[in-house]
Amino acid sequence: MVLVLQILFVSILACLVGLFLIGLSRKVTARIHWRYGPPLSQPFIDIVKWFSQTAVSHGKLFDAGMIFSLTGSVVVVLFLPFGGICPLSGSGGLLVILYLMLIAPLGIALSAGESANPHASIGVSRKMQLAFGYELSLLMILLSLMTYYRTVSIVDIVETQIQAGWSLVQLPLVVSGLAYLLIMPAIMGIRPFEMIQAPQEISSGPMAEYGGKFLAFATLQHAFNIYIGLSLFVNLFMGGGSNAGYFLIKLLLAFMVFQVVHAVWPRFRIEQAVRYLWRWPALLAFIGLIIVWVTTS
């Protein structure tokens, strides 16, 4: 019973946090651009509106991929500690989270693939390449964490940090932490790594064919995605949180940092992005892994 309540609590709160952050992102960007911006409740209004509109579907996989994708995101949230609450701990840890995080983009990719829209396929192709770009560093960063803490469980990593302090300021991990900061915008898909959507260029890429409830689902998935990206960083490098409130404050803090980057940067081309990701962050992550490997052996 407690487990069911925890699952509901974490998934609904994650969704609300994600939607709130989407609203906040538009507001902050607008203010940095000297505009007024939409109200904070705009994403919520949009979701309700889209969900009541009829939509165009291109086939069974077009529907199923979307559901599959959102399911993947919700399930990842259940494996991430939310300030002391982690509904599904103890089933594989960080490696399982890494794999579950695949489901969401894969679902969107399959769904968008069936729409037979060239823009959608270009967007998916960019997403795949970008993911390959940042995973190179992300995998090394996660491995240095797992090697340093000698566990694959994210709950253990958070608990150790609550006692010993943030990973970001632990000496052997600081290089990996820097690399993580550099790839965070790519993981979250914000500028300068926004080429997947690129509204002015490939008409929102994978999103091109989505309308009505598909767009509502896609936005919900995006909200979860923002939460997952930030939550992983906060849990792994900023010590998680001993309670939910503290955790959310850290989440907001991390979000604001990347929001400022998002507001002022232009967009990379895909090959520039991959070249960047495979150069400095990968180098830092590699050095970080060597440092951890040497100091722990």
């Binding site: 969900f51 009541s52 939509a55 165009v56 579907s57 291109h58 529907d63 409830k213």
Partner: peptide
């Protein structure tokens, strides 16, 4: 939840 929404039109 998805089925609760309005019906899609096939394109």
């Amino acid at each position: 939840f998805f089925r609760m929404g309005p019906k899609n039109t096939r394109a």
